[in-house]
Simulated assay, not measured.
Amino acid sequence: MDFMLEEEMIDLITFCLQNPDSPQVAEKKARIVEIGNELFADGGVDAFENMFFALENRIKEEIGKDPRPFRALWNGHTEQWKY
């Protein structure tokens, strides 16, 4: 399941980074929040860290943009995750 979520997250964040003015960005961000809820329920902050490590490396390599601002979409689950 994590692999499928990782691929979906890459697609969502890549879209948002490449199309920041698209009306679909809000919908994509809402799905990123949903995925965060699933990840946190399954593995806590470690799941967040693992996911974003993979996302950051792959997205930076593939499109040359930084996905780190999207980490803030998962704020509020725990004091350990503040971005």
Rank of each mutant, 00 (worst) to 15 (best):
D21I: 05
Q18P: 02
F52C: 02
Q80F: 08
V33P: 00
V25E: 14
E56Y: 06
I10E: 13
M9V: 14
I35A: 02
V45R: 00
I32H: 03
A26K: 15
W74Q: 06
M51F: 01
E62I: 09
A47Q: 06
G64Y: 06
Q18N: 07
E6S: 06
R68T: 15
F15H: 10
G44L: 10
K60D: 09
N50Q: 05
N50D: 06
R71F: 11
N57W: 09
L39V: 08
D46I: 14
Y83E: 12
T14W: 05
E38P: 02
W74Y: 02
G36D: 08
K28G: 04
F48S: 01
L73G: 07
P23H: 12
D46P: 02
V33N: 00
K60H: 07
I63Q: 01
I63W: 01
H77G: 05
F48H: 01
G43V: 08
Y83G: 11
K65F: 05
F52Y: 10
L39A: 07
N75Q: 12
E79Q: 00
S22Y: 04
W74K: 03
N19H: 14
V25L: 15
F15I: 11
F3Y: 04
A72T: 12
E8W: 05
E62M: 07
N75C: 10
L17S: 00
W74G: 04
V33F: 07
P69D: 12
I59S: 02
G64K: 09
F48L: 04
M9R: 12
D21K: 08
Q80A: 10
I13A: 14
L55W: 10
D66A: 13
S22M: 06
T14N: 07
E61L: 13
P67N: 09
D2S: 02
E79P: 00
L73C: 11
A47T: 03
E49Q: 13
E62V: 08
L39M: 11
E56C: 03
H77V: 08
E56L: 03
D2C: 02
F15V: 09
K29Y: 09
A41H: 04
A41S: 14
W81S: 00
M1D: 10
L55C: 10
D2E: 06
L12F: 13
I63D: 01
T78Q: 00
K29F: 09
K29L: 13
R71D: 07
I35M: 04
R58V: 14
K60E: 14
D11V: 14
L73M: 13
E6Y: 10
K82L: 00
T14K: 12
G76V: 09
E56V: 06
Y83I: 12
Q18G: 02
A54M: 09
E61N: 11
A30S: 07
E7P: 06
L55M: 15
V33L: 02
Y83W: 13
E34V: 11
I32G: 03
A41G: 10
L73P: 01
F15Y: 15
I13H: 12
F70W: 15
K60V: 12
M4W: 01
A41D: 13
F15R: 09
E34P: 00
D66T: 13
A47K: 07
I13G: 12
E56I: 07
N37V: 08
K29P: 03
C16H: 04
R31T: 13
F15S: 06
W74V: 05
R31C: 11
G36Y: 05
D21W: 04
